[in-house]
Design a protein around this nucleic acid. Sequence first.
RNA 1: CGGGACGUGGCGCAGUUUGGUAGCGCACUUGACUGGGGGUCAAGGGGUCGCCGGUUCAAAUCCGGCCGUCCCGACCA
Length: 479
Amino acid sequence: MARDERGVTPQSEDFSAWYNELVFKAELVDRGPVRGTMVIRPYGYRIWELLQADMDRRIKETGHVNAYFPLLIPESYMQREAEHVEGFAPELAVVTHAGGKELEEPLIIRPTSETIIGEMMAKWISSHRDLPMLLNQWANVVRWELRPRMFLRTTEFLWQEGHTAHADEADAMAETMLALDLYAHVARDIAAMPVVEGEKTPGERFAGAQRTFTVEGMMRDGRALQSGTSHFMGTNFARAFGIRYAAESGNEEFCHTTSWGMSARMIGGVIMTHGDDKGLVLPPLLAPYQVVIVPIGRGDQAEQVLPPATELADRLRRAGIRTHVDNRPQLSPGFKFNDWEMRGVPIRLELGPRDLAAGTTLMSTRLGEGKTPVSLDLAPARLELELTAFQSLLLQRATEFRDDHTSTVDSWDEFAEAVKTGWALAFGCGSSECEDDIKAATGATPRCIPAEGALEEGMCVRCKQPSAYGKRLIFGRAY
RNA sequence: CGGGACGUGGCGCAGUUUGGUAGCGCACUUGACUGGGGGUCAAGGGGUCGCCGGUUCAAAUCCGGCCGUCCCGACCA
């Protein structure tokens, strides 16, 4: 059954093939020459810019300031926090030669910047008056991944990493939760991904952190995607890097630090949360083009149709709608319809001689079936409403999907069945041996201890020991 | 690192078994027609067949070695 090579493999046939073909066909990315690297093409990068702009604004609104730290980190820095080194050692890229000779000390290409930022914080902080120190940087990092996947796991990726230092533990914990809320907001209100906020179990914690929090989204194949993390480091890094301050009492104290990150992986989450067999479905707030106008007609007709199409686009843009006129002359309208559907444009407008005569334009939404005539005069206001509705529809759909694919289970059989297609809410005993056993048997891991879960106790779904954490965990297979 | 597949115009592939002038589809260029759901016809351009070596009158094809990529497993935002 030869699939039309212009389309993508249906999700139901092979979700992974669907994703893989789509990221290339929608021109989001191309492969880099080095294994596991990714070129983010203009259409894909625009999505990142839109996500980034919103996040950056909120990071600043909450009192953080941007800075930039070097890509190259002395190898010795990595060694200072025992768990941190151990966690990252297998995926480090190391520069051993430069300037034509071997370096005295190898340099690590940052996999994350706790160490170098910790080193600088130690230098910059001396008094409680210097605290809290609230830093953020937008950067690329490199982790030598064994099994790359576009956006989800690439050797080099783009992200934002927040690093903060606080006088006391309560402040640092509040900061950790603030960052988590920020991620939940970006996911829900911008990406229309109904994420669950929660805490990681010890086995899933960040290397060197005391507590790790996460926002987890559910993809359309039922798997979970960690879409942002926030870590409370306690004084671990402060001790390793000497981040100390003189308290009001005059005593010298260690700072409490946090770090938190959200990456371009989020784009993978958007693709897998909303996409369908026709291609991408982009939330209006992240769509490079929210509306695409396809003029219909050629020759004399084209000359008649293009000016009104351009004028309509201008009016929509003035209303704040990102609009594009597809005036590629050599392509048929039908081709363009399919093309923009593949690229996930929320709303398409057709404008031809018949519409012009009627003073309307034919509107199709990416998720709807039919076409609706819309008055040209009222188009800007109407489309604003449509886009807002489209954005909420996506969140609603995704929420329903997630709820339909989440089951509360108490028996092992139910559990094993549930994690094949979605999430299981079940009790865990808290031992990492038991978690490993569950993973080996089903591929599922505890995604988080959900912040909003009801308080209850029970028996571990696997070993029947008393439950830990006082609530059910979310288990699922993950990316 | 283990298992599987593959390297041939930009992309997707056939050709390899059985050695004999490098092909097809899409894309591209030009022209005409066409245009409201992936257009038609005609004429063109473009390839050291992954690399190195060997066998042979002759290698994409046979032999040896190397490199690379993709897919499936163990690590991860």
